[in-house]
């Protein structure tokens, strides 16, 4: 389990990114970024994106949409074809070293040496950033304790569970106190309890000033953590807005109602589309301008009680699917 924040000076100092400017600035600026791979596949078709300092930003898209290519270019793991990228005003072509100093990356796949000890992996990464060993040891202890890995520090990385390996990559990415942290599906394969404690940790470091860009397939994760969002599909940005504005676009929500007593046919709900899935389960589509009260009143009039109710799908998930489908139709047209 992740450890709660110690509200002492050390914790505050550790969680506050290095070289934080007094004034807000653009953490990540991507302009007309294009990537064509050697086989001719155009992964990015000239995307532009701005992420402001302090933001918790979601970059979503279906598999193969271009998310990892975008983050790969920002992290210097992929060569761009055209366009420009700057991190906190440092252009990747002209001030690569300064840009990299501001950036921490948690990749999707495990990319550390499985035969190294946990502590060595973190200390080595600190060394790559020129951090003296004494400082690196203090930071490594702080982050490994924070992420519940301190007891495992002398274990070989291959002996860790999947969740621990993910946390190790987060500790490694934070060791130089980056101002911008990129997380590519950080909670993939992590159980619910641990996932939620990782969310708390990420919110904590975000509150302390670290800008975070997150990609995830758990849309609930993006909805609960992120303030702004971009959706990328087929190498183009199809949405770039705030989470609130995006969710406001949702016209219809689908609810599942558990009802008693058992019903043989769907109850009459005038103005609503509904379907009886089984004798105790009713699915109702509710449009934004419609309220829920009329549903309860109509059911009560028919002597039907609602024992519980839940969303059929996460709100962001419904929007995500519709946006991607719209984009697909536009491309076909």
């Amino acid at each position: 389990m992740l450890q709660p924040l110690n509200e002492d000076r050390v914790a505050h100092t550790m969680l506050t990114p290095a070289n934080q400017d007094q004034f807000m600035t653009t953490a990540l600026s991507i302009n007309n970024l294009r990537k064509v791979y050697g086989n001719g596949f155009e992964a990015l078709k000239g995307i532009s994106l701005q992420v402001e300092e302090g933001d918790f930003f979601a970059l979503l898209g279906p598999n193969g949409a271009g998310k990892s290519t975008t983050l790969g270019i920002v992290s210097s793991l992929v060569n761009k074809t055209e366009g420009s990228v700057s991190v906190f005003g440092h252009d990747l072509e002209r001030e690569l070293s300064k840009a990299k100093m501001c950036l921490g990356v948690v990749p999707q796949e495990f990319n550390f040496n499985m035969f190294e000890k946990v502590i060595d992996i973190v200390l080595t990464q600190a060394g790559y950033y020129g951090i003296p060993l004494k400082v690196a040891r203090e930071r490594a202890e702080f982050y490994l304790r924070k992420l519940g890995l301190w007891e495992k520090r002398n274990e070989r990385a291959r002996m860790l569970s999947g969740g621990m390996k993910r946390r190790l990559m987060i500790a490694r990415a934070l060791i130089h106190n980056p101002r911008l942290l990129i997380l590519d599906e950080p909670t993939a394969g992590v159980d619910i309890e641990l996932r939620r404690s990782m969310w708390d940790f990420l919110q904590e470091i975000n509150a302390a000033g670290t800008t975070i860009i997150l990609t995830t397939h758990y849309l609930e994760e993006a909805e609960s953590l992120c303030r702004n969002i971009a959706i990328i599909d087929h190498g183009t940005i199809v949405q770039d807005t705030s989470m609130r504005e995006l969710l406001a676009q949702l016209n219809t929500e689908t609810f599942i109602l558990d009802i008693t007593p058992a019903q043989q046919q769907a109850p009459q709900l005038k103005g609503y589309r509904s379907e009886l899935v089984d004798d105790h389960t009713l699915v109702v589509e509710v449009e934004r301008e419609q309220g829920m009260n009329a549903i309860f009143q109509a059911l009560e009039a028919q002597d039907i009680q609602v024992s519980s109710m839940r969303n059929k799908a996460n709100r962001l998930e419904e929007l995500f699917v519709s946006l991607v489908e719209q984009n697909l139709e536009q491309e076909k047209a």
């Binding site: 992290s75 210097s76 990319n111 790559y128």
Partner: peptide
């Protein structure tokens, strides 16, 4: 080559080392 194969070359590539 092992560093490439295990992808921990990425640790070096994301860092600011010349």
């Amino acid at each position: 080559y092992s560093t490439k194969f295990q992808r921990n070359i990425e640790e070096l590539l994301v860092s600011p080392i010349p």
